[in-house]
């Protein structure tokens, strides 16, 4: 029986998007559980930021086997930037890593982010989405910085609240 390429690709495409959709929804379902257990005296943003730290820390550890200084500082920063952009892409975003004007400076840009849509569905503020992304990336860099003995920082430069336009983060080395 010959392969119907259109049918196979469509099935794969649907499965991929369903899986990506579940990533976001599962996160917000667990967020709800965490807030119920945390009680009324806890700010939801604090819980979400703590979760971002835990995620980031764990993701950072998975980065370490691939860290490589052999291509020098610029090569290293670009590989790291691409790995961070890759996290967004895995979730369904359209993200890139671009070299900045300053040495070792990388801009991570996301032009399509599914997280605000999921957040809206669960009644979560857009501000929380942006701050959690920033905190998660900062936590990723904690172990990377210590491992490579390079002080690294990442900051949110621009966030578009509804997931439209472009979100920009700046990755750089501090002295």
């Amino acid at each position: 029986m010959p392969v119907d390429a259109e049918k196979e690709i469509t099935r794969l495409y649907k499965a991929l998007h369903s899986a990506q959709d579940e990533i976001g929804k599962t996160y917000y379902r667990w967020r709800k559980v965490a807030l119920e257990f945390a009680g009324d005296n806890v700010k939801p943003l604090d819980v979400a930021l703590r979760a971002a730290e835990v995620f980031g820390k764990d993701i950072g550890k998975s980065f370490l086997p691939r860290m490589n200084w052999l291509k020098g500082e610029e090569g290293f920063m670009m590989i790291l930037g691409k790995a961070l952009a890759g996290l967004w892409i895995t979730d369904g975003g359209l993200a890139t890593a671009e070299k900045g004007e300053n040495p070792g400076e990388i801009f991570i840009k996301c032009t399509r982010d599914p997280w605000p849509t999921w957040a809206k569905e669960f009644g979560v503020s857009m501000e929380e989405v942006a701050l959690c992304r920033e905190r998660m990336y900062q936590s990723v860099l904690e172990d990377v910085s210590m491992f490579m003995n390079i002080p690294l920082k990442i900051e949110l430069e621009k966030a578009i609240s509804r997931g439209q336009g472009e979100t920009v983060m700046r990755l750089y080395k501090t002295e």
Partner: peptide, 8 residues
């Protein structure tokens, strides 16, 4: 020093 482990 507390350098993170490369291998989990």
């Amino acid at each position: 020093s507390a350098v993170p482990q490369r291998l989990r």
